[in-house]
C-alpha cells in the first residue's frame, strides 16, 4: 500500500509537468493547427536560463519570472519570424519547420550551456514529508501547488477575461472568430507566447528533480504530446487529466514492470490510443470536412 501511494505521488508529480506541456500543445494546435515540435525546447530554455539567472546572483523568486519572461519572448519571436509567414503551407512543411526550430534552439542551447547537466536548487528547502505512508519530496509539493494555481489562473484567463474568450473563440472556430472581429493572427502569436511560458514553467519545475541539459526538451515534449493525445486534442481539461494519467501509468509501470521499459510502455500507450481512440478519452467525435 505504501508503495502504491509512493508511485501515485511520483506519477502525479511528473504528470503535472506533462499536463503543463500538454496545455501548451493544445493551445497552439487548436488556434494555428500546428503541432509545435519545439515545445519541449521551451522547457529547456526555461530551466537552463533560470539556472543561469541564479548563477548571476539573482534570488530564486526573481530568477524564475525572468526565465519565464525570456522564454515567452522567444516563443513570440519564433511565431512572428518563422511560423506566421508559412501558416498556410502544407502540414508536412509545418511539421518540418517546427522540427527545424526545435533543432536550432537545441543547438543554441548546446552552444550557450554546453553538454554538462546543470542543477537547479529546489525552491522549498525542507525535509521530505510523510503522508499516508508515502515520502513526498517538497519539490513535488511545490509542483502540485504551482500547477493548481496555474490551472486556476488559466481558468480565470480563459473564462473571465476578454482576451481569453477571444483565444477560446479562435480555438473553437478561427474563421468564425475572425468574422466576429477577433484578430486571429495576433491570437496565434499569443498562443505561442503562452505555450512558451507554460513550457518554461514546466522546465523550471522539473529541473530540481532531474537536472537540466540541452537535450531535456525532446523527451518532455514528446510526453506532452502523449498526454495531449490521451486527453483529446481540443480540450484543455482533457490534456490535464491525460498528463496526470500518463505520469501515473509511467510511475506504476516503472515500479511494477521495469523502469527501463517505462518509456516504451508510455509510447505503447500512445500508439494504442492513436489506433483505437484517436480523438482522445475526453473529446467528442468530430467529423472532417472534405
Amino acid at each position: 500500500m505504501d508503495l502504491v501511494m509512493q508511485y501515485l505521488v511520483t506519477g502525479l508529480t511528473v504528470g503535472s509537468i506533462y499536463a503543463l506541456m500538454a496545455i501548451g500543445f493544445v493551445t497552439i494546435y487548436n488556434i494555428t493547427g500546428i503541432l509545435n515540435f519545439a515545445q519541449g525546447e521551451f522547457a529547456m530554455i526555461g530551466a537552463l536560463s533560470c539556472v543561469s539567472f541564479v548563477n548571476l546572483g539573482l534570488p530564486m523568486f526573481a530568477a524564475i519570472p525572468a526565465a519565464i519572461i525570456l522564454t515567452a519572448i522567444i516563443g513570440f519571436a519564433v511565431e512572428r519570424t518563422v511560423i506566421f509567414p508559412v501558416r498556410n503551407r502544407s502540414v508536412i512543411t509545418l511539421i518540418v519547420i517546427t522540427i527545424g526550430v526545435s533543432t536550432f534552439i537545441k543547438g543554441l542551447g548546446l552552444i550557450i550551456w554546453g553538454t554538462s547537466p546543470r542543477t537547479l536548487q529546489p525552491v522549498m528547502k525542507m525535509g521530505p514529508i510523510q503522508l499516508l505512508g508515502a515520502v513526498i519530496n517538497p519539490q513535488s509539493l511545490f509542483i502540485f501547488l504551482t500547477v493548481l494555481l496555474l490551472l486556476a489562473v488559466l481558468y480565470v484567463f480563459f473564462d473571465k477575461t476578454f482576451i481569453g474568450s477571444a483565444l477560446r473563440a479562435s480555438e473553437k472556430n478561427p474563421r468564425a472568430a475572425s468574422l466576429m472581429g477577433i484578430n486571429t493572427s495576433s491570437m496565434s502569436a499569443l498562443a505561442f507566447t503562452l505555450a512558451a511560458a507554460l513550457g518554461a514553467i514546466a522546465g523550471i519545475m522539473i529541473a530540481p528533480l532531474t537536472d537540466a541539459t540541452y537535450e531535456m526538451g525532446f523527451l518532455i515534449g514528446l510526453k506532452g504530446f502523449v498526454a495531449m493525445v490521451i486527453g483529446g486534442v481540443n480540450n484543455i481539461s482533457g490534456a490535464v487529466v491525460g498528463g496526470l494519467l500518463l505520469g501515473v501509468i509511467e510511475a506504476f509501470s516503472g515500479g511494477f514492470i521495469s523502469t527501463f521499459y517505462s518509456d516504451a510502455i508510455a509510447f505503447g500507450v500512445l500508439l494504442l490510443m492513436l489506433f483505437f481512440k484517436p480523438t482522445g478519452l475526453f473529446s467528442k467525435a468530430t467529423g472532417e470536412r472534405v
Binding site: 518563422v82 509567414p85 508559412v86 503551407r89 512543411t93 518540418v96 519547420i97 522540427i99 527545424g100 526550430v101 526545435s102 533543432t103 536550432f104 534552439i105 537545441k106 543547438g107 543554441l108 548546446l110 552552444i111
Partner: peptide, 14 residues
C-alpha cells in the same frame, strides 16, 4: 552542427 541544420531546415522550408 545541429544549429546549422536547424537554420537550414527553417530557411529551406520558408
Amino acid at each position: 552542427e545541429i544549429v546549422v541544420y536547424g537554420l537550414i531546415i527553417i530557411l529551406v522550408m520558408m
